[in-house]
Computed example of a mutant assay.
Amino acid sequence: MPASSISQRLGKKVRQLRLKRGSSLRDIAEEAGFSSRFLVEIERGRANPSLLKLNALAKSLDLELGELCALASPAPSRQPIALVGLRGAGKSTLGQKLAQSLDTVFVELDAIIQAKAGISIAEIFELEGPEGYRRRESIALDCWLQENQEGVLAVPGGIVNSAESWERLLEKCCTVWLKASPEEHWNRVAAQGDTRPMAGDPGAMGRLRSLLKERTPAYRRAEIHIDTRRRTPVSCLTELENSLRSTS
């Protein structure tokens, strides 16, 4: 492959990663220890940075050098991608970034359920109970799978409690388990401003640990496992893209 082509692909990847991270040219250049002008030249495919500078650039993007230099583009998905895991695993954040990277649609199954029901998820549980919610979940999943041959779908963590729906996901989708520790699930939900599951309940963390332990055997059946603990969304996205290429 010509050196110019490699430089152009590297530059395009650096720009995409920087924009996904929400960083300016100046921010990344300062973290990497070189000028904004040099970073512009890298992104335009006109520079030939040394390994030392590439390593510094990778660190400024929260990546390892090997992750930055993996230049192959993600293969287009031949089937829908379903992200699973407990609440706070990062399904919405990573799902949106993955869909943008693959130039496809991202949707949350709960949003489809609410749209079809015309009421909130909380109201469904209150009026119809867990069984009513699972029925609606199954119908919404069937409809989405029939209408979409590709796309990124974030599914509720409890979908594994419905054997039929879970088996359908495993059959029809490339399933991805986003793993996190109970503490990180807890902290991420709280960071979103929702402290209701924990407020005034000293046993909440214990139940969260038990829930994760109970569901882990089912989650392990997913085709791809991404450990999100103490990692940035960009780093997780890079690993997921690489995993999708290797399974395509």
Rank of each mutant, 00 (worst) to 15 (best):
T104Q: 08
S60W: 09
F106T: 06
E126V: 02
T104K: 07
A99D: 01
D142H: 13
E131T: 13
N148W: 01
E126K: 15
E67M: 11
I124G: 07
V84A: 15
G118F: 01
G158C: 05
G132W: 05
V155N: 04
E108D: 15
L63G: 11
I121H: 04
R135I: 00
L86Y: 07
A82Y: 05
E164I: 14
A154N: 08
A111I: 00
S162W: 06
N148D: 03
S138M: 05
R135V: 02
F125L: 13
G90R: 10
A56R: 15
L86C: 11
A56W: 01
K53I: 05
S73R: 11
D103A: 15
R134Y: 03
Q100M: 11
G151A: 12
Q146F: 03
Q146K: 13
V152I: 14
D62R: 15
R78N: 11
A122Q: 14
K97C: 02
L141Y: 03
G88F: 05
A56T: 04
K97W: 00
K97M: 15
G151W: 03
Q96D: 01
K91H: 09
I139A: 13
C69A: 09
I113C: 01
Y133M: 08
F106N: 09
L68K: 07
S77P: 02
G66S: 13
L153M: 05
L65T: 13
E67G: 08
V107A: 07
I81M: 03
A56L: 13
A163M: 12
R134S: 00
S120E: 03
G95A: 06
G90N: 05
Q149L: 12
Q146G: 13
V160R: 09
A89R: 02
S92A: 06
D103L: 09
I113P: 00
I112P: 01
F106C: 05
E137K: 09
L68R: 02
L127H: 13
I139H: 10
P130W: 11
A75D: 00
G157S: 13
G95I: 05
I119N: 02
Y133E: 05
R78D: 08
Q146W: 00
V160H: 07
I121S: 07
S77E: 11
L57P: 06
L54F: 02
K97H: 08
E64H: 13
E150C: 12
L94I: 08
K53A: 09
K116Q: 15
N55P: 00
N148V: 10
L141H: 08
K53V: 10
A72T: 12
L54N: 11
A154W: 10
V152A: 13
P74Q: 06
I124K: 12
A115L: 07
Q96F: 01
P76N: 06
A115P: 00
E67A: 15
L109Y: 04
K59F: 02
G66M: 11
L98Y: 03
L141T: 06
V152M: 12
D62W: 09
L65Y: 10
L61M: 09
